[in-house]
Design a protein around this nucleic acid. Structure first.
Lengths: 207, 207
DNA sequence: CGCGTGAATGAACGCTTATTTACCCATGAT
DNA sequence: ATCATGGGTAAATAAGCGTTCATTCACGCG
C-alpha cells in the first residue's frame, strides 16, 4: 500500500489537480498560487478547474481536510494497536508524526501552514480534527500519569498534560520545516530519537 | 526599558509604518496585506509609503531582519550572563525564547512565518542569523555533553546535539501559534515548565 | 446517424495589486 | 522675500487575480 499522504477521493482529474495544488502550495503558499498555475500544471486552462471544484477555496479546503483526516486515520490505527500501554501508545504517536512529517513533508506542511486560510464552517471542521489529534496525546499522557508510568512536568492535572502534549506535537510537526533528504539520517533513526525525546519529556520511568 | 520586540531603527514614521505592517502581517500574512492597508493604518495614502521604504518587499525585509537581530541580541546577552555553566545557559536560552514567543508573539510569528518570502541576499542574510541562533544552542549542548552534565539522545556527536537543539527550539518557537492570553498560566510558570522540558530533553543530571 | 453530455477553450469581466507620476503645500534657510 | 525641499496627495499604469461565459469539441448511446 503506497501512501503518498495526498488526498485520494474524487475523480482522477480531481486528484491530479489536488496533487498539483499541494505541490504549488508547498513551494509558494496557497495565496501566492494562482488558479492558472494549478491548471497549467495539469495541461489545462484556468476555466477548466471549475468543472471539478466549486472554487479555489473549496479546492484548498478539500486538500487540507483530506490530509488531516488521513493523518487521523493512520494515528488512531497505530494507537489502537497498542491500546492500554501508555508508553507504547506515546511511542506509536511520535513514530506516526515523525514519519508523516519527514516522509510526506509537502502535504504535512501544506496542511499545517494553510489551514488558517479556511473560513467559516470549513475552518471549524479542520480545527475540530486538530483538537481531536491533540486530545489523543493528552489522554495518553493522563492515562500514563494515572498509572504512574509517566511523571509530567508541572503536576498531574490536565494543564500539565496539555503543556506536555503541545511541545511534543510541535517538535514533531515542525520536522517538515527543516527536514531535507540530504541529511545523513534515516527515517527510522529519526523516529527512534524523537521517541526518546518524547519519553523523556513525559518523564517515562526507565526500567 | 520597555521592549516591544518591534523594529526600532529609522525615522518615527518608518517605525509607525513598520509597526502597522507587523500588526497586519500577523493577522493576515504578508502576501495578503496590501500597501493600502499599511498606509491607511497610519492615516496615509498608498504612495506615501514610497517616501520611506523602497518597496513593500524592502519593508518586509526590514521588519523581519530587525526582529531576528533583536532576538539574537537579547539571547547572546542572556547566555553571556551565565557563561560556562551549560545548564544555566540552556535554561537562559529557553527562558528568552519562551518569553519572546509568548509575550511578543505577534512579532515572533511574523518573523518565523514570513521570512521564507524574502529573496536573494535578503533571504540569505536572515537565514544566516537563524543559523547562528540555532548554533548557539548546539554549542551549549555539546559543551554540556563534554562536561558530562548533559546526556543527549543518540550519542555525543554533533548530529545528536543538532537533533536535540532543533526540537527544543521548535517547541519554544511555536508557542506563538497557540498561546492566547486567556490561558490560565502566567508567563513565569510557562517558562519554568519549558525549562524543565528542555533539561529533560538534554538529559541534564538532576542533583 | 444524430443527439445529449461532460469537459476544455479563449476571451472577457470586474477588481485589486504594487508602483510611478505629476502636482501641491508647508517648512526652514538664505 | 524667495526658493529649495521633504513629504504628502490624487491619479494613472500595467499586471495579475478569481471567476464567468458562450462556444466547441469528442465521445457513448438509442
Amino acid at each position: 500500500m503506497t501512501d503518498t499522504g495526498l488526498p485520494v477521493g474524487g475523480s482522477p482529474l480531481q486528484q491530479r489537480l489536488a496533487a498539483a495544488a499541494v505541490e504549488l502550495f508547498y513551494r509558494q503558499g496557497a495565496i501566492a498560487t494562482s488558479v492558472r498555475q494549478i491548471t497549467e500544471a495539469c495541461g489545462l486552462t484556468p476555466g477548466a478547474l471549475y468543472n471539478h471544484f466549486e472554487s479555489k477555496d473549496e479546492l484548498l479546503y478539500t486538500v487540507v481536510r483530506d490530509i488531516h483526516l488521513r493523518l487521523e486515520s493512520v494515528l488512531t490505527a497505530a494507537v489502537g494497536a497498542v491500546a492500554g500501554d501508555p508508553v507504547a501508545e506515546l511511542s506509536a504517536i511520535v513514530r506516526v508524526y515523525v514519519a508523516r512529517h519527514s516522509d510526506h513533508r509537502e502535504t504535512a506542511r501544506v496542511a499545517n501552514r494553510e489551514f488558517p486560510l479556511l473560513t467559516g464552517a470549513h475552518y471549524d471542521e479542520v480545527v475540530a480534527i486538530r483538537r481531536r489529534l491533540r486530545d489523543t496525546v493528552v489522554d495518553v499522557l493522563l492515562a500514563g500519569q494515572k498509572k504512574q508510568v509517566f511523571d509530567l512536568v508541572g503536576g498531574d492535572d490536565r494543564t500539565a498534560a496539555v503543556l506536555t502534549a503541545l511541545p511534543i506535537l510541535d517538535m514533531c510537526v515542525h520536522i517538515s520545516e527543516w527536514f531535507h533528504e540530504h541529511r545523513p539520517l534515516s527515517h527510522a533513526e529519526l523516529e527512534a530519537r524523537y521517541v526518546g525525546l518524547a519519553l523523556r519529556m513525559a518523564g517515562a520511568r526507565t526500567h
